[in-house]
Amino acid sequence: MRFCRYQLSDQSTGIGLVVEDRIVPLQDIDPALPTDMDSLMAMQSAQLERLAAGCNLPGLSGSVKLLAPLAAPEKVVCVGLNYRDHAIETGAEIPSEPVVFNKFPSALIGPGDTIELPAESKRVDYEAELVVVIGKTARHVSEDEAMEYVFGYCCGNDVSARDWQKGTPGGQWLLGKTFDTFAPLGPYLVHKSVVPDPGKLRVQLRLNGETMQDSTTEQLIFSIPQVIAHITQVVTLRPGDVIYTGTPPGVGDARTPPVYLSAGDVCEVEIEGLGILRNECK
């Protein structure tokens, strides 16, 4: 099951089931179904199964804009240096435990939205990432039970201002990662039931059609259960919170010569089974 948030030409918004190339509003399937993503995530698996009735319904017609699948997550948690080859290409030591930082929710944008390149940075970089969406409150979760707390997955782009992240006193990871528009997310929220093994997904990023990153989540140093268990030792994760799980090698800052984002560039993050997240820079 793939879900989305959408906006119509009259500015009204809704939640839809994505069936092939069409969007079926949940309210067309059953008026009693949720009208927001938080309520949808609270449904039990057995309840979600009835959404299959929407597969034969017509989709929306006219102008439809996809929004970020989650409107306002309480937390946007990120894991750095979580692919061995990426750590090596940056010259960093292989971490012995997850490197955790965050972005503010104000950085979130959806598919088709614009990545705004700030005048304050000359070294803005891309990072394709698998994003985990938490489905129920998680605190002190073990690795064995961690996947029970996952609702689904999205494509994400951990856009990063490297001159702020690395070139300022002390290294400003937070500020370098959380400029407005620096957390593209989407295009869909894909339920975990249709992702048999999130540890075996191909992750790609194309910049203006050229493949810059191409790896699989098999290369993660710390698995999704390990990451969730580690984070919930410290902080309570709530439904709708998202975890950007790390990026594979091929980032622009590690290339010779370096490649940074410019106005007019188009980033496409594609993750196997999750769709393509496309954003233009300006």
Rank of each mutant, 00 (worst) to 15 (best):
I115R: 04
K200Q: 13
G264L: 07
V266P: 06
L48P: 06
D265F: 06
V242S: 00
R162C: 12
Y188N: 04
H140G: 12
R162N: 09
L201P: 05
V251T: 07
L237C: 03
N279F: 06
V99Q: 11
E270I: 08
P69F: 01
L277D: 08
V227H: 13
S142L: 11
E218I: 05
A68I: 01
G273M: 03
P257F: 10
L189H: 01
R278P: 08
N279C: 07
G171S: 05
A183K: 08
M41T: 03
V99F: 15
V18L: 10
R206V: 03
L57W: 09
V259M: 14
R2V: 00
G152E: 00
I29W: 12
L8C: 08
F104R: 15
Q213A: 05
Y244W: 11
P196H: 01
I243H: 06
G176V: 01
L57V: 01
P118K: 09
I224Y: 02
S39D: 13
E280I: 09
V124A: 07
L40V: 06
F3E: 01
D113E: 13
Q165H: 12
K166M: 15
E89Y: 01
D214P: 09
M147D: 13
I15S: 02
T247Q: 13
P248A: 07
P69W: 02
R238L: 15
E97R: 13
L48E: 07
I221W: 10
L81W: 10
Q11P: 05
A53I: 13
I134F: 09
L274Y: 07
Q213N: 12
S12P: 09
S45H: 14
V159A: 03
E74H: 14
R2A: 07
K122S: 14
Y6H: 05
C154V: 00
N157S: 08
V227T: 11
C155E: 02
Q11H: 11
E97Y: 13
L237A: 04
K200I: 10
V159D: 02
I15A: 06
M43G: 03
L261Y: 13
E218L: 14
Q165G: 10
Y83I: 06
A72D: 15
Y260C: 13
L237W: 01
V79A: 02
L66V: 00
L70M: 04
S12Q: 12
F151L: 04
P31W: 11
Q11A: 12
V235P: 02
